Simulated scan of single mutants.
Amino acid sequence: MERRNLLRAAVLGGTAAAFGGTLWRGAAYAAPAQPGAGPYGALGAADANGIRLPSGFTSRVIARSRQKVSGTNYTWHDAPDGGACYADGSGWIYVSNSEISSTGGAGAVKFNSSGTITGAYRILSNTNVNCAGGKTPWNTWLSCEEVDRGYVYETDPWGVKAAVRRDAMGRFKHEAAACDPQRGVIYLTEDVSDGAFYRFRPTTWGDLSSGTLEVMVGSSATSGSVTWARVPDPTGASTATRNQVSGTKRFNGGEGCYYANGTCWFTTKGDNRVWAYDAAAQTISLAYDDSLVTSGTAPLTGVDNVTGTASGDLYVAEDGGNLEICVITPQGVVAPFLRVEGQSASEITGPAFSPDGRRLYFSSQRGTSGSSSGGITYEVTGPFRT
């Protein structure tokens, strides 16, 4: 998720369409999300951590790169990136990637039921530019390498089992992953300007050692029906995976990916879009596009990581823009939820909610220093809609 200044296309193909999936409670939309009042009200002044939050919310620093996590002997990794939370008895674990060349990998912080840190440790080491990834229903973390012909590694958030490289999931510039247990597939984004959107069908659900990698096929329209086709050579040895199938649908800089209740949402930073793939209908539409904002200034730019809540809200982090996490509601309203001040050379990464939905974790990848060694990981607590 390196910062890029990409030119926007002036002409949009197709027609803006409705959000898909039952998460949006069946509401019909004539267009993608528009700016409005968020569910939590306006942002207040920056707190002691430089974070602007709505009334009732507070922040704390969980970890800083190259410093030991409080109460532990684990030194937090550089360039914290994609993340996820896992239930651990009455507590939970937050997993975070490290987007560093050659020595990337992932680490984890463990919390008890009151939110006190009780441990921190490494779960993946010496891999390459681990950007985003995804949580599996069987409670592993898929850590994705954002390099040409990069791999996906399946890791143990508890740090007990050794990480396993999952070659069958393809070799390309991986970004994020999202699991669809209804169809037994894993969706995958690709971070290049002419990238593809993939799904991996394991031979046996829950076992990623073998399976079929497929690519989405469709026109350049921003809404309508799509199909899937098998990628002949998932290794990309002679031809990049995105270029092996005629009619592959192109996406400009694939980033975050999140699945719930029949819909997979994913983002593309090259055109500041949030897409909705209705898995049952096999249709695609736009949930948000900054160039289709009809009044005022688009609140969400530099779209990147995405996560969601049981209430139906999507939370989208910015790489650039105002360094915000914005919320998109089921009512089709997009608004800032938080803003990080004084860190313009950074990006927001790894948003993930604790299992009870009451705490949001995220990182500023380069913090106030603008360097990968200056990463800061935060927790926000407050009256989230659950």
Rank of each mutant, 00 (worst) to 15 (best):
C179A: 06
T241S: 12
S125G: 12
V340R: 03
A352V: 12
L323K: 13
S372W: 10
G374K: 00
L314Q: 01
N139M: 09
Q182H: 12
M216Q: 15
R122I: 07
P336C: 10
L188Y: 01
P383H: 10
G71Q: 07
A310H: 13
E347K: 15
R339S: 11
A229I: 11
L208M: 14
T301F: 06
T386M: 14
G308V: 03
Y94V: 09
T368R: 13
V61T: 07
V11P: 01
M1W: 06
L12W: 01
P351G: 05
E318C: 04
P234A: 03
I62N: 05
W141V: 03
R230M: 12
T116N: 13
L12T: 07
A240V: 05
I100A: 12
A106H: 00
S225T: 15
N272V: 06
E99A: 11
G236I: 06
G350K: 15
G332V: 08
V69Y: 06
G134K: 10
A42G: 06
G256H: 01
R60N: 04
G321F: 08
D47C: 09
R250S: 12
T189S: 08
A237H: 06
D278F: 00
G296W: 09
A177W: 03
T267G: 02
K110N: 02
C179D: 01
G107Q: 01
D180P: 03
V147E: 02
G236K: 06
W275H: 08
D319I: 05
G367D: 09
P351L: 10
S210N: 02
R122S: 12
R3Q: 08
A163Y: 03
